[in-house]
Nucleic acid binder design. Structure first.
Lengths: 179, 179
DNA sequence: ATATTCTCCGAATGAAGTTCAGCTTCAACG
DNA sequence: CGTTGAAGCTGAACTTCATTCGGAGAATAT
């Protein structure tokens, strides 16, 4: 008992596996997080307090990273979506990554295996703003070349889907910024 | 008055611009959608009913597409993230796109300007499952070649950020599937 | 200047989130 | 084999929040 509270304080949670009932809850919450716990429990075959308890645990363990509103980029004045492949030399140091992640247009940053080093997902007001972003990229030390893929139309955009019939371990660590 | 209710029935909403207060609300909701309306209003300098009213309007107009829980892909047994560029001949017809969008591993589908036709974001259990997805892609009529970028590590992954000091028109149509 | 529309606030109501005590199941252990 | 402890669920009680309503103020149009 004492070691568990101790583990919680140290942010190392000995949380449970994500079981079938948890995945049913996740499936509903990934579709719409505004439903009541009563309705949520009904869908998962649980009472409201039980559903609440499990969701709270999943938030704690990091199985549910966050609950957010998805804003329409057009309503925020950023209708242009593009993927940018960045070739670099001497990456791996965090300062450059932090510089790029501070650009407000950048939505995702990944390092990938393939003929590019970095892969960015960016949203801007127009092509002119995209050019401005590219200019700032080239000003970042280490960047050698970029390749842009401007999105013409989007056919699908959805959260991670559950739907695997197997149980998986909860993530080891709490969700936190990666740098 | 009558024409407005008529317009609502026909799904053509004559909604307002998204102003500075709306953007403050969006900024908070994009970070965390579990806050109370009282707290939300406090952050935006409004009372709880006013904040509630504006959020409701933004949901109606489509400025807020949906409110969802972000599940940790690892907790769902899909730790592998990859971007797949797909070259095709004779696209543009929806049936093929619907076939691809029915794959549960596929999270996003975009058509892009550049040396690829389609750009997919996919999550799978492992590289073997990724190969299986590629095989299903090649079985889809029209696909000629694919290029995969397996993500080694992710440094940033966040929702669309507000923060532009200008007002923008609300989206013209309600958010709905694109095909 | 008057009417109209729009948005806001404060109070009241209703519905939801949250806690609690007690019951059941299951596994560990003497 | 019986006992003990932990974990999970349920229904009821409690508390907080979402939601509605009436009225006041500002801005715009007539």
């Amino acid at each position: 008992m004492d070691e568990e509270t101790d583990a919680i304080r140290q942010n190392r949670l000995p949380e449970r596996m994500v079981d079938a009932a948890d995945r049913r809850l996740l499936g509903a919450l990934v579709e719409d997080a505004t439903v009541s716990y009563a309705e949520l429990g009904e869908k998962a075959g649980l009472s409201a307090p039980a559903a609440h308890e499990r969701v709270k645990r999943m938030r704690r363990s990091g199985a549910i990273r966050q609950t957010v509103a998805m804003a329409d980029p057009k309503a925020l004045g950023k209708p242009l979506l593009a993927f940018v492949h960045v070739d670099t030399r001497g990456w791996g140091k965090t300062p450059e990554l932090m510089a790029v992640s501070s650009f407000p247009e950048v939505e995702e940053i990944h390092t990938v295996a393939g003929d590019a080093c970095l892969l960015l997902k960016v949203r801007t007001e127009d092509t002119r703003a995209l050019e401005g972003l590219l200019a700032r990229l080239y000003d970042t030390p280490g960047v050698t070349s970029t390749r842009s893929y401007v999105v013409l139309s989007t056919y699908l955009e959805r959260p991670v889907q559950p739907g695997i019939t197997q149980d998986w371990p909860a993530p080891k660590h709490m969700a936190r910024p990666l740098y």
